[in-house]
Nucleic acid binder design. Structure first.
Lengths: 201, 201
DNA sequence: ACGCAATATTGCAGTCACTGCATTCTTTGC
DNA sequence: GCAAAGAATGCAGTGACTGCAATATTGCGT
């Protein structure tokens, strides 16, 4: 992996990873709030100032994987057949990420526990997901085409609902101690949304 | 209003309002980031330290109304007939808030424009809405009763979807320059979610 | 191998949100 | 009026984050 990258690029990735792992270790040892960026820098063997060359905020270290997740979703979404409904395409794409999550379980739990115990990390996570929503609704809007010329509200609603399903599934998965498989939970959330919420009593 | 309140309580409310209005004025004049809490305190005629007795963070001043909104939703939700479906109850309750919004238009736009241009305010707003989701899903879970003994995932999904509808409607309302009435937009979002997203092409 | 240009790292000094604590004022119930 | 409760203030600090200038590292042409 990264074989064709120059030394510069490779070092950058290594450092980023070093910072991330140093930070997560410290967060678990002493808590997110009680860990300073200086301590992280010290453990990662970089100058304090350098930390901010790699991450814009302390919060973002915990959520370092978000960018790739979105890439993965968008990529998958692009490769879905054109005649598939947007909703099914979204379901399929999010399922890919859900199974990634399932396989990275332990690393994920680590991040989640920091996220849920720390308001500012949680807030940042939601903001990043709002970014996902923008991106996904743009992709979906294009997919739907000009037939639905509603200013994109339908596309946004689809994206928004899909991510709501994802969050609900994950939340339940985490608090219930991962008894059920995440992809199954997600599928069931998508089904409930698709088959009408109005029937629930 | 507040006629039967003691002097203490009345002063507290007045001060809070004074801080809020001072802050919003300054945010509009100089931008959120370039306004310091000291400047807000100065204009509101209080000591810098006192600001934090009224608001936990600078962000929260912009979102001061959120607590009452949630109260209103919960109150309304409590007064919906017991035989109404949870989804319809949610729709009715959120419509109440939507029409509040519609009437407070100009004050709202003010807040929204600060919110959307400032990541940290936006993030905080989402975090507060996540709190709404918790509260609403608890209320809905109780409403559904033990028939659905799924650990509350259905309740959460309902709340989550309803708030997603609300956000989509508001977002569209704001970016489209409030051409359509917010309650109408919200109704249409609720309808689309209820009648199946799977049919959208 | 060498030097030059591009880029990355570092250090320094500063700003500002936010906190704990001790002190002083204001309100309230008696 | 007065004592107790509560609110406001001042002070001194912490720590995230920034701009800027200095220094080190890397990549490339020769």
């Amino acid at each position: 992996m990264n074989a064709e990258l120059g030394l510069r690029e490779r070092k950058k990735l290594e450092r980023r990873a070093a910072i991330e792992s140093a930070a997560l270790d410290l967060f678990e040892e002493h808590g997110f709030d009680s860990t300073t960026t200086e301590q992280i820098a010290a453990r990662a063997d970089i100058a304090p100032r350098t930390f901010f060359l790699y991450f814009p905020t302390k919060e973002d270290v915990v959520l370092a994987d978000y960018a790739q997740r979105l890439d993965r979703i968008v990529e998958e979404l692009g490769s879905r057949p054109a005649d598939e409904s947007p909703w099914d395409a979204l379901r399929a794409s999010l399922l890919v990420v859900a199974s990634d999550y399932e396989h990275e379980r332990s690393a994920l739990i680590r991040r989640f526990s920091i996220m849920t115990t720390n308001p500012s990390v949680f807030a940042r996570s939601l903001a990043l997901q709002a970014g996902w929503e923008d991106t996904l609704s743009a992709v979906i809007a294009e997919r739907i085409g000009s037939g639905h010329d509603d200013g994109g509200i339908t596309a946004r609603l689809l994206a928004s609902a899909a991510l709501a399903a994802m969050r609900s599934a994950i939340q339940h998965w985490v608090i219930s101690g991962h008894h059920e498989a995440l992809p199954d939970l997600l599928t069931s959330c998508f089904d409930q949304l698709a088959h009408g919420l109005a029937e629930v009593r």
